[in-house]
Design a protein around this nucleic acid. Structure first.
Lengths: 209, 209
DNA sequence: GGACGTTGTTGGCATGGTGCCAATAGTTTC
DNA sequence: GAAACTATTGGCACCATGCCAACAACGTCC
């Protein structure tokens, strides 16, 4: 407005503009930016314009690195759900069953507590989404988690029935975390005890059949 | 094409066009149409154009009856989640606790089986899952379900801790239904037994504290 | 060290979806 | 039958997305 002569070209801030990055770096940068935004606001609310602006790149570049907005979103979800699951897991101490359960539950609660934001982001409300591809990612993560639990407890992770049962239990685990962190209707201790007791009960029941 | 003279006006099919309906009827008609479409495909995939076409009305009418597309969607979710919950519930027979659990679980499985489509639909769709308003509706439904379960079992539905615990259990119930209906990794009988046993265990534990 | 080729990057165009609003026309009322 | 009421329409303006051709940064070769 004040500068009358010059056309309304962009402020042209950074002199370091149009810097050429290695594809991997650029991809990573976009992914992190998008992740940060999707964590806070729902999918439809975050425009590709905003992502590009935040990342300091042209909007068209998003479509160069990812098929489309949806593709970018899927990658974000995949990361925030799958990666944490593949991370460090406490060395399985060969202790008695009740202690193992305590360890497993603590591991789960800790990992959730650390990354509460991205956890709930990817989970949606129930961990269910109508979108087939998102669903597939979530299911993969659930199954992975179920395997972890079974391994940690010294049970057979290849037993289909056992794994299905633990995936069911996983639904309760998620809901419990929600009550604890978001609704704050349960203390961490209460959440822990509940999950611990039920897991113990479920595993003993599964084994019995 | 064949009729050359007249301008390219619409085919003007129905002679019954532009029929004036009572607002309640029209609203209902839109809601049902939208519900039918949202059941099958994710939110972003269903355009207001399509909803209007399917409902046989002008697109602008949607914004007259609902604030916007999102508002329409919220109403659809609210209905498909809340209404079934308020419906018939088996008369609570004053029997022993284990029998009551069987009744409660059967009621749940039945109601889900009947409306599997809308049930999974309502559980969240794509990016909307993170949406606060959708979340609120889902939480309300969860709490309502928890009350129902407690009542059915002759327990105090006003006990906050008990209700929170049952809401946690509800997460497992949903996951179990998913394994049963969608993944088919569990038979209905297995799902029933699992939910029955765990509910029995959980309630006895809650009571004990 | 300068021309050249590769390719990461940009800007703009076309398309489609959505919200809004003034004009239109059923329906009722007197 | 006219007039008031309001359900309903159609089109305009805006925004977001995907696509594509031009551009320029970086490495390479002579």
């Amino acid at each position: 407005m004040s500068t009358g002569a010059t056309t309304g070209a962009a402020p042209a801030v950074d002199p370091a503009q149009r810097r050429r990055l290695h594809p991997d770096e650029r991809r990573e940068l976009i992914l992190e930016t998008a992740s940060r935004l999707f964590e806070v606001r729902p999918y439809a609310d975050v425009s590709t314009v905003e992502i590009a602006r935040e990342a300091g790149i042209a909007r068209g570049l998003l479509n160069h690195y990812f098929k489309d907005k949806r593709g970018l979103y899927l990658e974000v979800v995949r990361r925030s759900v799958l990666l944490p699951m593949l991370e460090a897991l406490p060395a399985r101490a060969a202790t008695a069953s009740p202690d193992r359960v305590d360890i497993a539950v603590d591991w789960f609660l800790d990992s959730v507590e650390q990354r509460a934001a991205s956890y709930f982001n990817a989970l949606g409300s129930e961990g269910m989404s109508r979108d087939p591809e998102v669903t597939a990612i979530l299911e993969e993560a659930d199954d992975l988690a179920a395997r972890r639990v079974l391994e940690l407890m010294g049970l057979d992770a290849e037993d289909d029935l056992a794994r299905a049962t633990i995936r069911c239990y996983g639904g309760m685990a998620k809901a419990t975390v929600r009550e604890w962190i978001r609704q704050q209707t349960l203390t961490r201790e209460q959440a822990h005890d509940l999950l611990r007791d039920v897991l113990l009960f479920v595993t003993s029941t599964v084994l019995a059949r």
